[in-house]
Design a protein around this nucleic acid. Sequence first.
DNA 1: CACTCGTGGCG
DNA 2: TCGCCAAGAGT
Length: 373
Amino acid sequence: MEEQKVKNKQLENLKGMDIKAFQDDLIGWFSKEQRDLPWRKDSDPYRVWVSEIMLQQTRVDTVIPYFTRFMEQFPSIRALAEADEEKVLKAWEGLGYYSRVRNLQAAVREVNEKYDGNVPDTPKEISSLKGVGPYTAGAILSIAYGKPEPAVDGNVMRVLSRILLISEDIAKPAARKIFEASVRELIDHSNPSYFNQALMELGALICTPTSPSCLLCPVNEYCQAYHDGVQQELPVKSKKKKQRAVDLGAAVLVDQEGRFLICKRPGEGLLANLWEFPNTEVSPAFPGERRQLEDYISGLYEMEIQVAVLPERIQHIFTHLIWNILVFTGGLPEDFEKSDHYRLVSPEELKDYAMPVSHQKILKLYLDSIKTP
DNA sequence: CACTCGTGGCG
DNA sequence: TCGCCAAGAGT
């Protein structure tokens, strides 16, 4: 019944459309106008896979240098499978959504063992890999293997919402099924790779979120929103709620040989497995941020630590969170004992540790403070 | 389904 | 300045 409603919807929206002409115009445009991107040099499944993971919620311009470096450092399934986790995370540093790379390496290791290093080519098998959801599964199957599977991302939902005049809220997870059903009706079985990539490329270059270039669009004659002059009203997308603010106290602690104390974050959750300066959530009002941070660190390392506050406060904005960080500095005694949870590293060694951007800001603030007191 | 999970760029 | 975004997946 629900399935029937989806089917009725697409039949209604596809009525009277010359699908073959649409495919040819769309693919013809992509063949001519596609950007020269590093992951388009070939259709090696591993390269397609890595690029699709990096591109999740991330701009093309941001991904390009990461992709190039990553493929140099880990050029094959086996290379990534056998790589040191710390080095893989370091290669991802600054790209965000760090669970992506942890899942990618886990999945690559599974492919290396279970599939003898060959990326599977069936929806069931590839979807079972960690970090491979409906979009990525469809992208790899179509781009690397030429299978006529939908790859519905934000671009595709925006483009098709306009062409087919679909008013579903694309912020809702349920909306994706509508568009997947539409793609199954529209996709060119002779070139699924170009068809899917063309829809996304069109969304990136022409059918943009604000002020789409409809006059330049190769498929504007098929677009119902353009025909009705409502392209600016689509897609329908509900708003996200705004971030909550959290106050942190963080300490840059240095021993007598100039080494920094850093800690490893937990293996799950926010910024998992990244290294950072010791910090804790504080309440600015009571009983004083400095005292709260000192108590936290003293309890953590069973030693009395005293810190001084730096004048500037750092703000770091996440998708769903805002960190307001007050930065402190302090010295470490000589008889400081090591453990797995934290390390003492020189400024040179610090470069080998993956740190969140927020803590790179902290480091910079500290270095500036000792340079110009 | 609602929420978590990063970052940098843009109008 | 700030909300919105950019080739989503896991829980």
